[in-house]
Design a protein around this nucleic acid. Structure first.
Lengths: 291, 291
DNA sequence: CTCTGTCATAATCCACGGTTATAGCATGAT
DNA sequence: ATCATGCTATAACCGTGGATTATGACAGAG
């Protein structure tokens, strides 16, 4: 194989039709270019240029070669340009797996801020449950996931983002409750929770089981969105993530029912494959998430 | 711009997923490849591979770059391959300008032989008059022409191929004429010649004028083909190129009318632009024509 | 007929891509 | 556990080939 740099010299000379000019563009001396061209001619066994006192002109063979070399270097130049953009965070693609709830109540503002700051970086968001998100991660179909952290599994690294707490809330029609009530006593109310396949739900169920408490929800639904809405209109007591109803609580639209023992806090965070270099775009995003 | 050889190293490593293997393919040592990759990473500012004890795996950025570099080098490799074929005369294109008559009576066998010997080289034959052929040559639309030589014009080089002689012939119905007759006496016969725009005709006319002879043809036609055919069926006396009716004369199908003074011989040859390198294919063709 | 711009050649030089040797590290086998 | 194997990284050194400068030859333009 012929030294690719010789092709670059050839490319420059053919494009400018002038060895001296090409030398300038290549930041080398004119004899260096002359020698390179001659060397290329020897290696290919073809005369590539007709020299005259007014410059050089490619021969038929030179013209044919030029077409190929031109295309070749255009690809290389494009690659260089794209890589530069990626490095400068002007281009990229991030694929992130995240549950619907987290996406809506936690992720959205970060997403918006990031997009505003790095408009060239596109994002694909895959809304799945945490378990499925881990599967996608294993298959390399997403860059990272945002999930409830206690999903410890080997082969992944985790990074905490936020501590969340689950609470029971009611609409304002319900009476205010000041002092914590026993968990079991909540069975008097119509209870509303996420569906069983949800990690949040699983976490709560496990906790209740530990404390020998049995609570049977009357309404199970897949979206926390609707759960909050239902509580608001007074359908019953909903188990939701406190962080995501701060506003409603402070406005008094929703009221927290303190329980005893208090539900333990848990964490949400980023999960990504161990031993895998993140793309620049993904790493940048995670950085902005973390601060 | 980044040294294109670094891209070649990158290309090889990415394709094989293994620095040591790539080193073997590139015929250099493993550390040399490691250094090159690291250098490329520094220059681009991107980590391109994830190293492990089982080889290397391109990062997201590495994968993206690879797409470009792969395309780039495929073009360069194609160029190299095509040029090699051209050099080996397995590929090429020759554009030649030649008159109808010369093509049929002189060129055809050479063309066939050449094509048999170099089947990969394609030919474009442009049938025009000599004057137009010269014009095409000036415009670079043909590689060379085959014409009557006395067309001296600067800026072209000529190369003789064949000496030809013009003769008057009749069909066998006409009486045999042993001793040369005066040119002027031919006016007694119905004369048949090529049309005025033809160079052969112009040459003859000039010669006749020099000798104060006036011969008015009864039939003027553009193809020597038909001219010969007309003579054969006894329509009159045709002025044709002797070399192209050798067979008919020896078979007695046509008879030559010797004239006095004898028509001067002339030459046909190759004309090509001065100071222009011929393509390998064209040069090869001219070589086979000349021997 | 000089002047200018172009490419080729010659002599010289040193940076850099190459080499060898070795260390470090995972992984899988004994 | 321990070893063997197959990778890559690092270090130190070396020699070649691409680069430079200086100069020559040539052709066209003014």
């Amino acid at each position: 194989m012929i030294d690719a740099e010789l092709y670059r010299v050839f490319y420059t000379v053919a494009a400018s039709g002038n060895i001296s000019t090409a030398a300038g563009q290549l930041f080398v001396s004119q004899p260096a270019v002359s020698k390179s061209i001659k060397k290329l001619e020897n290696l290919t066994g073809c005369t590539l240029f007709v020299r005259s006192s007014r410059g050089v002109k490619p021969t038929t063979e030179g013209q044919i070669l030029f077409e190929f070399v031109k295309n070749g270097f255009e690809h290389l130049e494009n690659g260089e340009r794209v890589l530069k953009k990626i490095r400068n965070k002007e281009q990229g693609l991030i694929k992130v797996g995240i549950s619907n709830t987290l996406c809506r109540y936690y992720f959205m503002p970060h997403l918006e801020a990031f997009h505003r700051r790095y408009p060239g970086i596109r994002m694909t968001i895959v809304n799945r449950t945490s378990t499925e998100t881990l599967k996608l991660l294993e298959q390399g179909l997403i860059d990272f996931g945002v999930i409830s952290i206690p999903q410890e599994r080997s082969g992944f690294t985790y990074r905490e983002l936020l501590t969340i707490r689950d609470v029971f809330v009611t609409g304002k029609e319900y009476p205010e409750i000041e002092s914590p009530v026993a968990l079991q006593s909540l069975s008097r109310y119509p209870l509303m929770m996420l569906e069983k396949d949800n990690v949040t739900r699983a976490y709560i169920d496990a906790y209740l089981r530990e404390n020998q408490v049995v609570l049977q929800p009357e309404i199970e639904i897949s979206s926390m969105d609707l759960l909050i809405e239902f509580a608001r209109i007074g359908l019953g007591v909903a188990l939701v993530i406190r962080n995501f109803v701060e506003e409603e609580l402070s406005q008094g639209v929703l009221k927290e029912i303190p329980v005893h023992p208090a539900l333990p806090s848990r964490k949400i965070g980023i999960v990504m494959p161990k031993n895998l270099q993140l793309s620049i775009a993904a790493a940048t995003f995670i950085d902005t998430l973390s601060n």
